[in-house]
């Protein structure tokens, strides 16, 4: 793992605000993400973690604040171009059911990035190999298990060669026996130097893979630490209570 702040800043979030009606979901969130960094966000359900990463790639319009990707301000005009550079993995996979696994992976690079199909297919084959699904290339999503679908969803995002990968509770919809395979793939990505933000409840993953862990509580970061300190010496009572509850369950 790289030390915090070793790489260049790739994403700058400043004073990000979002509310649904009267409910304040993001209350002025600010942070920097560095190249090759793995940033894990945890916290109780409904605290706004998912909304935070959905605002970063524009799936939710933000109500205030700024987001800079590689120094460029992301606004309405260049949002779509920015999303090309931000990969997203959803809790429910959201593979396209009418396409084969391979087509799921190659369609965006071919149609959005206008790259040569043969070249993209070759890269896609390597990606399938990497996540151990070479034999599933021609399968439809409905023929794959949840864990297999999520691994295809990860390489679908990777095939766009994004600057950042966002993971929105990638293992929460999976049966326990499927979780390990997906986490292994994510660990592998981290080892390869992929910059990623991971919203997850998988604390063992956070401990082993994260460069920094943030505890998100009521619309903002309550504390951000390196994993060792986060687990050994959490500063805030809410963090201690959250970690305690996870241990007890």
């Amino acid at each position: 793992m790289t030390a915090t702040g070793a790489g260049n800043t790739i994403l700058e979030v400043r004073d990000l605000r979002k509310h649904f009606g009267k409910l304040v979901v993001l209350n002025g969130v600010s942070f920097d993400l560095h190249e090759q960094e793995v940033f894990v966000i945890c916290g109780p359900s409904g605290s706004g973690k998912s909304t935070l990463i959905r605002c970063i790639n524009g799936l939710e319009p933000k109500d205030g604040g700024t987001i800079k990707l590689r120094g460029t301000l992301v606004d309405k005009r260049n949002l779509r171009e920015a999303t090309e550079k931000i990969g997203m993995v959803f809790q429910n996979f959201n593979l396209f059911p009418h396409m084969t696994a391979l087509e799921n992976v190659v369609s965006a690079p071919v149609h959005v990035l206008k790259r040569r199909r043969a070249e993209v297919v070759e890269e896609a084959r390597a990606l399938f190999e990497k996540v151990g699904l070479s034999d599933k290339i021609q399968s439809k999503p409905s023929q794959l298990s949840g864990g297999q679908q999520q691994r295809v969803a990860i390489i679908r995002a990777l095939a766009m060669q994004p600057d950042i990968m966002l993971f929105d509770e990638p293992t929460s919809a999976l049966d326990p026996e499927m979780i390990k395979g997906v986490l292994q793939v994510m660990q592998q990505l981290a080892d390869d130097g992929t910059t990623m933000i991971v919203v997850t409840h998988e604390m063992s993953f956070a401990r082993e893979v994260a460069d920094r862990i943030a505890f998100f509580y009521e619309g903002n970061f309550l504390e951000v630490q390196e994993p060792a300190g986060f687990f050994r010496n959490p500063q805030q009572p809410e963090t201690r209570r959250f970690l305690g509850e996870l241990v007890n369950t």
Binding site: L59, T83, G87, N94, S107, H111, V112, A157
Partner: peptide, 19 residues
Amino acid sequence: GQREAARALGMNFWQRMTL
């Protein structure tokens, strides 16, 4: 979820619609 996945891949309106 389908529409969001298409958007997250950078597809424009026409691509989301047809693909």
